[in-house]
């Protein structure tokens, strides 16, 4: 699983440099190539985490960049990295593919991440809990599942999540907290008293 960490965040100068490339791409699609090269792998992995078929993930990834390039003229800089816009397109593409039954939604996790996550929600790591998490996660509403994936499995900061969702960092924190609470509550319903 890809842990994006701080790769997303950029200094003011990096943001300005990136913006210059975006503006050039608005005038000439060929100038989009640096952005394509910079973000292709990230976007592919983001999609591949969520669907069960590799080839479909590659197709959707191409579709994301095609849509980005087609609509680059509409892109408006809001002081956040360009990647957040690409992730939003990718998110829509994944949902569209799921809606049309092209592929199946999956949640890809590593064992190590499960352990960390269970500790985070103070449930302790055991084989039983491991199995329980496998059972509970698919029951979560998509919005909450997405939040758990972003925050705990992909280690994205609330700032980045906020940028992708188009909300403030604090709002993202609140949403993250609510999703976690929902998951904990579901856990409790499964754990025998």
């Amino acid at each position: 699983m890809l842990e994006t960490g701080s790769r997303y965040h950029k200094t003011e100068r990096q943001l300005q440099d990136e913006l210059q490339v975006v503006e050039a791409a608005k005038r000439d699609p060929a100038r989009f190539e640096p952005l394509y090269n910079a973000y292709y792998e990230q976007i592919f992995r983001y999609i591949h985490q969520r669907i069960d078929d590799k080839d479909t993930a590659f197709d959707l990834c191409s579709q994301v960049f095609l849509k980005a390039l087609t609509n680059i003229g509409k892109y408006q800089f809001r002081g956040v990295p360009f990647a957040s816009w690409l992730y939003r397109i990718a998110q829509n593409e994944v949902y569209e593919a799921l809606r049309s039954h092209q592929t199946r939604r999956v949640v890809s996790i590593e064992t190590r991440q499960v352990s960390e996550f269970l500790e985070e929600i103070e449930e302790g790591h055991s084989e039983e809990m491991f199995r329980l998490l496998e059972k509970v996660l698919p029951e979560l509403p998509e919005e909450d599942l997405q939040m758990i994936e972003w925050r705990f499995f992909e280690k994205r900061s609330f700032r980045e999540i906020g940028d992708i969702l188009g909300i403030t960092e604090n709002n993202a924190k609140v949403k993250g907290h609510r999703s976690l609470e929902k998951l904990k509550k579901m856990f409790k319903t499964y754990i025998p008293k």
Binding site: R105, V106, V107, S108, I109, E110, L137, P138
Partner: peptide
């Protein structure tokens, strides 16, 4: 269809 969990 519910999401499928894939470990490792």
């Amino acid at each position: 269809m519910k999401p499928k969990i894939i470990i490792d």
